[in-house]
């Protein structure tokens, strides 16, 4: 090389190559990002096109406000309200179980347990996520159904409560590990600052650590909720699947997910009932989408408030 120095690095060919590589990388990342959105949109379109027939023949508003679900009678009655309410009841119970238990467990692990206990508990919680939902269902059938029947003097132990409790336990690992991450992310300086002002560990947790981690804990609860509302197998095994309007958590309920799973195998492809089940899927999709969107908005607002 005749040039004084660094001629190689600045050679035009190399720059062109690097620019091209940059372009390719950027293109790939863009494509991946957009692919997620396209897939989501495709799911919505797929559900909607299959639901068109039901909307045309049974009518969306009459389905959403209908209180009777008799899909096999003549003519079929396709009121989705019992199913929507069933899902909400079960999910509500699940939340009542997993939020207090999950947040308390996360606080214990992050703020109070010593190192060894923390490791043990974290492993147990990870193991909980690995247990298939059918197994949770089996335990529920063997233990919880008879217990609920006896404890509340019911005719059947298959209730929204039973399903909800098991779903709550199933959501626990999600809530615990994400809440624990959020608590862990609170700077130790803040805890020490609080301790130096004469606060006990518990006061510090309640007054500083939990508020500072609140957005992460909220996200944890939302993810747990997402898991609970979408879960199918355990609720199918535990809630009794009576498609009636529930009046309390001691009633047997049938959830949207349970309905789709139980009935999809027995319907005529392309028929009205088939199309109605897609409408159920579409409603479920809309509900989870709305929950996630709401969670995102809340989180974003929180982030703006806490992190200046």
């Amino acid at each position: 090389m005749s040039e004084p120095f660094s001629s190689r690095r600045n050679s035009p060919g190399r720059t062109t190559f690097r620019r091209a590589a940059e372009g390719v990388a950027r293109g790939l990342i863009y494509t991946c990002g957009w692919a997620a959105i396209v897939v989501l949109a495709a799911i919505a379109v797929f559900l909607a096109t299959n639901a068109v027939r039901a909307m045309r023949e049974a009518g969306l508003s009459s389905m959403l406000s209908g209180t009777q679900w008799y899909p096999t009678s003549e003519p079929g009655k396709f009121g989705l309200l019992p199913l929507v309410l069933g899902s909400l009841y079960v999910t509500g119970v699940a939340l009542a179980v997993c939020v207090p238990l999950g947040v308390a467990a996360a606080v214990f692990i992050s703020e109070f347990a010593d190192k060894r206990l923390t490791e043990v508990m974290k492993s147990i919680i990870e193991f909980m996520t690995a247990v298939p939902s059918v197994v949770y269902g089996l335990i529920g059938v063997a233990v919880l159904i008879p217990f609920v029947k006896d404890a509340f003097g019911l005719d059947s132990g298959m209730t929204a409560l039973t399903g909800g409790v098991v779903l709550g336990v199933m959501s626990l690992p999600t809530v615990i590990s994400i809440s624990e991450d959020a608590l862990h992310a609170v700077p130790v300086d803040l805890r020490r600052g609080s301790a130096a002002l004469g606060n006990t560990r518990w006061q510090t947790t309640v007054k500083v650590t939990l508020p500072a981690a609140s957005s992460g804990i909220f996200a944890a609860v939302m993810l747990g909720l997402g898991r609970a509302i979408g879960e199918t197998m355990a609720v199918l095994m535990l809630t009794g699947n009576a498609a009636i309007m529930p009046t309390s958590v001691f009633d047997s309920v049938r959830t949207m997910t349970g309905t789709i799973a139980a009935e999809m195998g027995e319907v005529v492809q392309g028929g009205l009932h088939y199309s109605v089940l897609f409408t159920v899927g579409l409603v479920l999709f809309a509900i989870t989408f709305a929950i996630n969107l709401a969670a995102d908005i809340v989180l974003e607002r929180q982030r703006k408030r806490w992190r200046r």
Binding site: R192, G193, V208, P211, W306
Partner: peptide, 13 residues
């Protein structure tokens, strides 16, 4: 006996 730390650590409030 109060303490002031090396890095400012105001609480998020």
């Amino acid at each position: 006996v109060g303490q002031v730390f090396q890095r400012p650590n105001p609480f998020p409030m």
